[in-house]
Design a protein around this nucleic acid. Sequence first.
DNA 1: TTATACAACATTAACGTTAATGTTGAGATA
DNA 2: TATCTCAACATTAACGTTAATGTTGTATAA
Lengths: 330, 330
Amino acid sequence: MSKNNGRVTLQDIARATGFTVNTVSRALKNKEDISRETCLKIQQVARDMGYVRNFLASSLRSGRTKTLALIAGSMMNPFYSVLTDLIQQEAGRLGYSVMVFCSREEQDTELQAVENALSRQVDGILITPCSFDSPALSMLRSSGVPFVLLSRYQEGTRDDCVYCNDEEGGYLAGRHLIDGGHRHLAMLTHHQVVFSSRERFTGFRRACREAGLPEENVRFACLEDPDRILAQLKEWIAEGITGLFSFCDVEAWSTITLLESAGFRVPGDLTVVGFDNILGYLKFPKPISSIDCCLQEEARAAIEMIRRRIHDPSLPQQQLCLPVSLVSRV
Amino acid sequence: MSKNNGRVTLQDIARATGFTVNTVSRALKNKEDISRETCLKIQQVARDMGYVRNFLASSLRSGRTKTLALIAGSMMNPFYSVLTDLIQQEAGRLGYSVMVFCSREEQDTELQAVENALSRQVDGILITPCSFDSPALSMLRSSGVPFVLLSRYQEGTRDDCVYCNDEEGGYLAGRHLIDGGHRHLAMLTHHQVVFSSRERFTGFRRACREAGLPEENVRFACLEDPDRILAQLKEWIAEGITGLFSFCDVEAWSTITLLESAGFRVPGDLTVVGFDNILGYLKFPKPISSIDCCLQEEARAAIEMIRRRIHDPSLPQQQLCLPVSLVSRV
DNA sequence: TTATACAACATTAACGTTAATGTTGAGATA
DNA sequence: TATCTCAACATTAACGTTAATGTTGTATAA
């Protein structure tokens, strides 16, 4: 034992074995220039003494923390928490730990998270930014630290990012409803993620046009207040709308909850299609058809992207658009 | 600029201002022995140069990382992700960042998480352990690092922990169903968290006894396989059971989903009461009555407990049991 | 036999920060 | 005037690890 809060250090092992600190370090990292015998002996002693490497010291010296930061909206939103879980799994495969920060979709909280992450010398940052002109993003860009945008895309972006084909997703959602016999459709967004929302609606409308539905049969609304949402839904239903495309699964479920508590039947009065296919990971909510953006693949790709950038910062930036598919349920 | 991955260091600021590294350090930390004038000047220069403190170096020297580890089951389970969010908020208030690890309820993954956390020199660890005899716990106990058990309790435990009054929660759930006119009740657990589960059922039965229900009117089952769960539910319903107490909200919802997809009505064929009152944080699922264990308070208390222990390791250990209440919905 | 090569270690310095202690000069005190 | 005090800084060393470079003794090649 020594000073390090009673924790065993290389120093202690060195004293115990008679070798130098450096030799102990190399032995524990299975490096060359150490005889098989001493290597095993040192490792044994380290185990016996309960040695745990001090990552701070190691990172400070080596310049690598083997840590990534994930800055997401909120862990209260299953979309983010599922993504977080997947990111952790994929990162873990490569030996990375993940520090999770929540921006609560607030720009200053997000900025603090970035500062914090930078301060902790993370090797890379994964972020679903509040917006594309958030101060957090400019700080990231000028920091020189590798970062990848998750589930966010804006035309003309030069930042590394992984997102899914929103337009195609909207198209598939539209076609699914049309194939189900629905001729009067609407898309609903609660909390607007601008680009995705627009793209999804664009695809949605494309499907409608393709099917020959008149423009006035296709509605769109972006509402946050539950009361106004319910009012809008009632209006739509009264107008004969029977198919609803929700911006995402989470919003779909809260819409369904709203409708059911108001006495409507889903499906029945309204058929709802979601987006993200969170049901592939979250088992408990009501099954709904959804656009699968393959979050697992997104996580995998993002980790791979940041890994490569950490390894070679001079690589050309990449905007990776992942394919989507429809998962039909019920 | 210097070597630190192109990042500005105290050294750089020292050169720029003509002061020594130590003076710069003290100025940036607003310590004494620095004239107001130089303090402001140094801080200004630091800001201009885009200085970000290197937490690794700082922590290595000071022995404090201002970081907590949270080791939870999985971010795919809203109970844990909501708890994580709350923990982060409370920790943030005190200037702590949180490293999140998922054990996936596996003992070896959990052990790895603990090792990882210790290796990163976190100031304290919050954990919802797989079990009370998991190797992770013994490692924690012998590590000397402050830790607090979250939402877990076992009779006779000496570890610091924060949990809720499971027995009382079960009692309230039982009484709620009985007050609703139900005379034939059951409790269902999917994934068994042994102590909590037993306690909740004990309280549940107490309510039943108190109301004079005969023993055979009160059932219990612990099943994981959805098919067997559904079969059991059908059997119960056929036997006249009308009130169901679910181990937790998440399980309640998946039970409801099972029932509804099998053509049953909830409530109607079966009234379901959950536990945790996750609906207070998660807005999208179907509203159900639930036992509120006040997760926010649990998070607050846990952070306060670990803060005090970090500050004074000699404090007596504490097992904090939080009160519960019923939240009736629909 | 002597130079060479190499395995197996040791030595040194550094990562960026901070705690502990030292120094200095100006003003206050006797 | 000599001593003391203290504000405002500087110097030194250390946190635990690792990269770069030195050193040694033995085995091999010429």
